[in-house]
């Protein structure tokens, strides 16, 4: 028991790194994803095509590869980022592409009549998006966004290839030092606790948005 308690502290420290990476990535990639989605459905062809290419590259190549690229390859182009910044950058660029495609599908699922009603009432395009389309889109994309968010909790463990002491790396360090598998189990419990909370938050959001039907 005492042994487990002694393992909890470094693992909790690792969890803080994991949670920070998770929270900052989510906070930045959601708005960036929305901007990308709006650019993707824009009538300006070069813009739309550029984002399409971007989404393909980010979703079509391994996140691990993108992490290693930002971390190891960027410095050779003279771009030096601190560890955390490099990890956050890679995660945000990658997740924004996924969110962008989810948001795009959500926006395009809103009936044409909503745009027409807004236009007939004198709304500009920006007002229509901000007040009518995007708020309705949020309700529809909650399930897939919840999926991505849970995936993000677990994907943060990829930073263990970098020199960052996240939850998984903290567990592995103890395992290698003590030849004891217990830290892996504790780490699994920590991850499950985090995804449990994320699941509950999204359940609550879905219930909140269920106040109206479509």
């Amino acid at each position: 028991m005492e042994k487990i308690l002694s393992m909890i502290y470094p693992l909790a420290e690792g969890s803080v790194v994991t949670l920070q990476l998770f929270a900052v990535t989510l906070l930045l990639s959601l708005p960036l994803g929305l901007l990308l989605a709006l650019a993707r459905i824009s009538k300006i062809k070069p813009l739309s095509k550029t984002v399409e290419l971007y989404n393909w590259v980010m979703r079509g190549s391994p996140l691990m590869l993108q992490l290693l690229f930002v971390y190891f390859a960027l410095p050779s182009f003279g771009i030096l980022l601190p560890d955390v910044a490099a990890a956050v950058l890679a995660f945000v660029l990658n997740y924004a592409a996924y969110f962008a495609e989810i948001f795009r599908a959500g926006i395009q699922s809103i009936q044409k009549g909503q745009y027409e009603a807004a236009r007939a009432l004198g709304f500009t395009y920006v007002q229509t998006m901000r007040r009518i389309i995007v708020p309705q889109m949020i309700k529809r994309v909650l399930p897939p966004v919840g999926n991505e968010t849970i995936t993000l909790v677990k994907d943060t463990s990829l930073v263990y290839v970098l020199a960052m002491n996240d939850l998984l790396r903290a567990a592995r360090t103890i395992v290698q030092r003590e030849f004891d598998m217990t830290p892996f189990f504790i780490a699994a419990v920590f991850y499950l606790a985090m995804t449990f909370i994320v699941t509950r938050v999204f359940n609550w959001l879905e219930k909140h948005y269920a106040r109206y039907d479509e």
Binding site: Q114, A117, A120, Q127, P135, Q136, Y212
Partner: peptide, 23 residues
């Protein structure tokens, strides 16, 4: 419109207030 096209995410009152306030 034939299909009404009310804003489903707003209450009846907010449907009426929305355009005057925003536009």
């Amino acid at each position: 419109f034939q299909q009404f096209n009310l804003f489903p995410h707003m209450t009846v009152l907010d449907n009426l207030l929305e355009a005057p306030m925003i536009v």
